[in-house]
Design a protein around this nucleic acid. Structure first.
Lengths: 340, 340
DNA sequence: TGCCCGAATGAATACGTATGCACGCCGCCC
DNA sequence: GGGCGGCGTGCATACGTATTCATTCGGGCA
C-alpha cells in the first residue's frame, strides 16, 4: 500500500469506475437519476479506494463549510461545558463540526474574521452583549445565528432562553414565604442579559411584599471566585447581616459558600444561599445548593433546530422562546435545623 | 449600500485596483516582489471594498484549512475547560480556529471523517487510547498530531504529558512519611494512560516501605460522580477503613469528599483525601484539596509549539516530554487537628 | 413507423485562490 | 555598449467538487 499517494479524488473514482466525474458527484449526493447498477459500481470503487470527498473543495463549491461556531464566555464556568456537550451531540448528529471561541480569553477578533471569511455557516452565541462586534458581523453577513441563554433586545435573530425573570420572581416568593427578610444579592457583570433579568425578577418578587435589597447587601462584580467569596464574608460581618444570599448563578453561589465556610458561618443555620442555572455540580453533597434550574437540554435542542430552520428559510421572522424554570430546593435553604 | 451583493473576490479587487488577480494574491500573502506603491493601492481598494479572502477557496488551494481539532473526553471534567482555554489562547494567536470533539458523547466518527476529509490540519488529543480509531486515522493521514496529557506507547507523534508516575510516587512518600498506613485508591477507567501511570507510581511509592493497597481499598470505576461517592462511603464502613483515600484525579476526589460528607466523616480527622491535576476548583475552601499539580499552561504551550513544528517538518522524530509535577498540600491532609 | 418524453450520462464550466512561468524593464558590471 | 541578473507583473493553470447543458438511448403512444 502506497501511503504516500495523494488522496483519491472524485476524478480518480470516475476513472476507476469507468464513469464521468459528474456521475461520481451524483452518487455522493444521492441524485435520483443514476442507474442502480452504476451507483453500486461507483460505490464499490469508492469503498475499495477508501474515498472521502474533500471537504474544502465541497465547501467552496456549495458555500457551506459544514461547521458551526459557538461563542462562549468564561469556558471554565461549568455551565458552559454542559451546553457545549449538548450542542456537540446535536450538531455532530447533523454532520456539523463545532468551532469554539472563548471571548473572555481570545477576544472577538477570531469570530469576526471567521464570519467574514465564511468559515462558519451558523453561529450559536452563548455570550453576546448588545453592541457585540461578533454578533453585528454575523447579522450583517447573514450567517444563520441563534442566541442561546442570552437575549439581546431587537436583535434580528432567533433567541432561546429561560424565563429568568419569572424564575427569580418565584424564588423571591419562596424565600419571603419561608420567612426570609434581609435578602442579599451577589451578582456578576450586568452586561449579561441572564444576570440582569434574574436581578430584575428577584427585585420584582421582593417588591410585591414591600421588601427590597439593602445597598450593603448588593454586589455586582466581575467573575472572580475570590471576589464572590470575599463579598460573602464582608456581608456577614455587617451589623445587620443578610438572612439569605441570592446569587446570579450557581458558580457565584459556590464562591459565596466558600466565603461562608472560610468565615465559619453555617448554612443554612446562619444564612441561606441560592444559585441559578441548575448545573450538575450544584447537587453535590458539598454544595447541596438550592437553585433555579433551566431545562438546558431542551434549550440546546431548540437552538439547533432554529439554526437549521433559518438556514433553510433565511427570511423567516426571528422568534424568541423562553423556557419555564424549576425551583430546586436543597440543603442551603432547608427549614429544618439540618446537620448541614 | 447593497447588502445583497456577493462578497468581493480577489478578482473584483484586481479589477478595481487595475492589477491582475495574481498581484492581489501576492499582496495578501505578503509576497516580497510587489512594488510598494502597488501594494498600497491594492490595500486601499481592499479596505474600501471590505475585502476578506474566502477561507474555503484558500484552504482548497493550499490544503491548509486553518483549523485544528481538539479531541477531549468528558468535557464536563473541569480540567478540560482549563485545557481548552489555554489551547484557544495559543491557537487563536496563530490564526487557527479550534474544532472540539467530545468523544464521550459524540463518539469518534466525527473526528475520523474530519481527518479523512481534510477538515483539520492538526490535532490535539486529550483523550486517546492505544487502539483509538481517531488516533490511527490521524497518523495514517499524516495529520500533524500531538498527544496532550495522554501517552500512547510507540505512537508515532509528539506527546506532552506530566510525570504522573513520579508525582504519585512523591505523593506516596509524603503520605507514608506523615504516618498513613492504610492507603486506599479510588481510580477511574484504566484505559486512561494518566490514571494508569498515577496508579503505578502510587503503588511503587508505597512498595518502597513495604506497603500496598488492600483489595477492598481499591476501586477502578467509570466516571460517574455517584460511583466515587458511594465507593468512599463503602470503604469507610469497612472493619478496617483506610486512613487516606488517594484519587486518580481531582474530580474523583470531589466525589469522594461528597461521599464522606454524606456519611458524616470528617476530613482530615477521620480520613485524608488527595487528588491529582491541580485544577483551580481544588483550591476552593469547600474542597481545600491536597493534590499534585501539573503545569498545564506550560504543557499546553509546548503542545502547540510541537504541533506547528511538525507541520513545518513532518519527518522529524517524535518527542515525548514530561513536565515535573508539584505536590500541593492543603486541608484534606493537614497534620494538625484542624477545624476543617 | 414515427415522434416525443424522460431517464441516464458525459462534457464543460464555475467557484476563489495560489503559483509556476514568461516577459519587460532597469541597473550594474565587464 | 552589450549582456546579465533581479525586480515587478500578468497570463495561465490547477485544486476537487457541483451543476447546467447537451447528448444518447429506450419505451410508450398515436
Amino acid at each position: 500500500m502506497n501511503t504516500y499517494a495523494r488522496r483519491p479524488s472524485s476524478k480518480d473514482i470516475a476513472r476507476l469506475a469507468g464513469v464521468s466525474q459528474a456521475t461520481v458527484s451524483r452518487v455522493m449526493s444521492g441524485h435520483p437519476h443514476v442507474r442502480e447498477e452504476t451507483r453500486e459500481r461507483v460505490l464499490a470503487v469508492m469503498r475499495a479506494a477508501n474515498y472521502q470527498p474533500n471537504a474544502m473543495a465541497r465547501a467552496m463549491k456549495t458555500q457551506l463549510s459544514g461547521t458551526v461556531g459557538v461563542v462562549v464566555s468564561r469556558i471554565t464556568n461549568p455551565v458552559v461545558p454542559e451546553i457545549l456537550q449538548g450542542l456537540g451531540v446535536q450538531l455532530s448528529r447533523l454532520g456539523r463540526h463545532v468551532i469554539v471561541w472563548n471571548t473572555d480569553s481570545d477576544g472577538e477578533d477570531g469570530v469576526v474574521s471567521a464570519i467574514r471569511q465564511s468559515v462558519v455557516e451558523g453561529l450559536v452565541f452563548t455570550a453576546a452583549r448588545a453592541g457585540s462586534a461578533a454578533l453585528t458581523a454575523a447579522l450583517e453577513h447573514r450567517v444563520s445565528t441563534v442566541l442561546l441563554n442570552r437575549t439581546v433586545v431587537d436583535a434580528a435573530c432567533d433567541q432561546v432562553s429561560a424565563d429568568n425573570h419569572g424564575g427569580a420572581e418565584r424564588l423571591a416568593r419562596y424565600l419571603v414565604g419561608a420567612g426570609r427578610r434581609r435578602v442579599a444579592l451577589v451578582n456578576g457583570p450586568l452586561d449579561r442579559s441572564t444576570l440582569r433579568e434574574r436581578e430584575a425578577g428577584l427585585r420584582a418578587g421582593l417588591a410585591v411584599t414591600g421588601l427590597g435589597i439593602a445597598r450593603e447587601h448588593y454586589v455586582s462584580a466581575p467573575f472572580v471566585h475570590e471576589v464572590f467569596r470575599d463579598s460573602a464574608m464582608r456581608m456577614m460581618a455587617l451589623p445587620e447581616p443578610p438572612d439569605v444570599i441570592c446569587c446570579g448563578n450557581d458558580v457565584i453561589a459556590m464562591g459565596v459558600l466558600c466565603g461562608l465556610r472560610a468565615s465559619g458561618r453555617r448554612v443554612p443555620e446562619d444564612v441561606w444561599v441560592t444559585g441559578f442555572d441548575g448545573i450538575e455540580m450544584a447537587g453535590w453533597d458539598l454544595f447541596d445548593l438550592t437553585t433555579v434550574r433551566q431545562p438546558m437540554d431542551r434549550m440546546v435542542a431548540l437552538a439547533v433546530e432554529r439554526l437549521v430552520a433559518r438556514q433553510a428559510a433565511p427570511e423567516r421572522a426571528p422568534e424568541l422562546t423562553r423556557f419555564e424554570t424549576e425551583l430546586v430546593v436543597r440543603g442551603t435553604t432547608a427549614h429544618t435545623p439540618a446537620t448541614h
